[in-house]
Design a protein around this nucleic acid. Structure first.
Length: 471
RNA sequence: GCUCCCUUCGUCUAGUGGCCUAGGACGUCGCCCUCUCAAGGCGAAAACACGAGUUCGAAACUCGUAGGGAGCGCCA
């Protein structure tokens, strides 16, 4: 059987980090083995499912670049099929009608909990042949085996075994004519010929009853792989405060999609000591069997480091479009300044996200408002005026074709020499002239990106503000 | 309560009985480099949850204990 995996979110929210990693692992396993990856939307719960969530999930998948080969398949389009299978099971004696009301079931559960035993359906209608009572809700329950054990070799966790005595006769068809989750999943996975069910380990407990369903349907069992959870930095469940926001929030915050993938692939999976993986490498090296058993915590510091790594080591031209997106998001016009790829080169050692990069790039796309007074006080006194004047002379002299960081560096060094000072004495006032502050990338790049005309104008602007020396 | 799962530096992890005086990475700290800020280089502190057992030998295997997580719906 060739490899077919699926990612099956329910559209009741956006795609968050946990879902994204599940999707990634499903996608990687399929790609690695040359198989197919199916996207299925589990929208049987009409109350909670929304179109907005469907769109949000699709957006997230697209942004991450996790392309699916089939789907999205909506479960709501398959109700006839679920009903047909449920009725076949009844006809085959593998499922039966039951007529309890919700209130009766709640009361049964309450009694069992009070008695300190695991709440389970008592099987009242399991073997009853009396005619159906009138005016009662009717559901279909699966006739779960009562003896024996269910076991499977989980591809992540190893052998897991549970006694059938722990299971009860689950409802597969609700009184409101909807299938239930555990049933729809199995019918879909069988029909879609899913070979590897990869999902969060909150589903381990569902697996044995699903296996029984497979067997009742006479369907071949897929391999199961249950992924450990991802927690927030504090070890608690991911909440809005930390990771449980939409993956799109990571785009807004300035993370590269492939950097986010690199970070999350290492949550629970590793390949020796390697930390950095391109998407191609992940596909080549990933194997679901190498995934860890234990939950992990989301660490923003490491994500930021990985993101910077990719900003530093990728082709700037590949980063530039993402920076442009951020510039626009800040209300800046990328056309009103230098080539964004050059900005990437100047700033990538100094920031961890594209957001920070765009904010720092502001001075090249718009005039800055005011000078940093503290910077002025520290660096604009002494011989700052002479240094700036010398720099102005040298920079004005540069032919346009020589407006490069290398030539600018040489020019500023000549200026420093002319006033008999170290480069630092020229660089700091220049920095203030260029950006208004005492912090910026190396002075040659800073000046280069401002552009020649604007650079000269900015020197003049600062000179005009400095007190005229008494001659 | 019952069932299932998990447990190596603060965090992500390497480790499949001797290569472990437990390795790497993020973060932290120190030094170097330096036109600011970074980045980079070098270095440091930092972990096998606990207890028994198996074995010549255990981070690794077994059993217990503790701690954490998940599930026990006509939710998914």
């Amino acid at each position: 059987m060739s490899c077919r995996t699926r990612f099956a979110p329910s559209p009741t929210g956006f795609l968050h980090i946990g879902g994204a990693r599940t999707a990634l692992f499903c996608w990687l396993e399929a790609r690695h083995r040359g198989g197919e990856f199916v996207l299925r939307i589990e929208d049987t719960d009409r109350e909670r499912s929304t179109q907005a969530s469907v769109d949000a999930i699709l957006d997230g998948m697209n942004w991450l670049g996790l392309a699916w080969d089939e789907g999205p398949v909506f479960q709501t389009t398959r109700f006839d099929r679920y009903r047909q299978v449920a009725e076949e099971l009844v006809a085959a004696g593998k499922a039966y009608y039951a007529y309890e009301t919700r209130e009766e079931l709640d009361a049964m559960r309450a009694r069992q909990e009070a008695a300190g035993i695991k709440p389970r359906y008592d099987g009242y209608w399991r073997d009853r042949t009396d005619p159906p009572p009138p005016d009662r809700p009717r559901v279909i329950r699966f006739r779960n085996p009562t003896v024996g054990r269910v076991a499977w070799e989980d591809r992540v966790k190893g052998r897991i075994e549970i006694s059938n005595e722990e299971l009860d006769d689950l409802i597969i068809w609700r009184s409101d004519e909807h299938p239930t989750y555990n049933f729809a999943v199995v019918v879909d996975d069988v029909d879609m010929r899913i070979s590897d069910v990869i999902r969060g380990d909150d589903h381990v407990n569902n697996t044995p009853r699903q296996i029984n369903l497979y067997e009742a349907l006479g369907a071949p069992l897929p391999a199961f792989a249950h992924l450990p959870m991802i927690h927030g930095p504090d070890g608690a469940k991911l909440s809005k405060r930390h990771g449980a926001v939409s993956v799109m929030q990571y785009r807004d915050d300035g993370y590269l999609p492939w950097a986010l993938l690199n970070y999350i692939v290492r949550l629970g999976w590793s390949h020796g000591d390697q930390e950095i993986f391109s998407v191609d490498e992940m596909v080549r090296l990933f194997a679901i069997g190498d995934v860890n058993h234990s939950a992990s915590r989301f660490d923003f510091d490491k994500l930021r480091w990985v993101n910077q790594h990719w900003m530093k080591h990728d082709d700037p031209a590949r980063i530039a479009p993402h920076l442009e997106w951020q510039l626009r998001d800040l209300g800046l016009d990328p056309a009103a300044g230098p080539n964004p790829a050059d900005v990437v080169v100047a700033l990538r050692d100094r920031c961890h996200t594209l957001r920070e990069m765009a904010e720092k790039a502001r001075v090249w796309y718009a005039e800055f408002e005011a000078y940093d007074e503290q910077a002025l006080a520290r660096h604009a006194g002494g011989r700052a005026r002479e240094c700036l004047e010398a720099a102005h002379v040298e920079l004005a002299r540069l032919p346009q074709a020589d407006w490069t960081p290398v030539a600018i560096d040489a020019a500023l060094r000549r200026a420093a020499e002319a006033v008999d000072e170290g480069l630092g004495k020229v660089a700091q006032p220049m920095r203030i002239a260029m950006t208004g502050s005492a912090v910026s990338p190396s002075i040659d790049h800073t000046v280069f990106l401002v552009g020649q005309r604007r650079a000269l104008a900015r020197i003049e602007r600062l000179l005009a503000r400095l007190p005229t020396p008494a001659r």
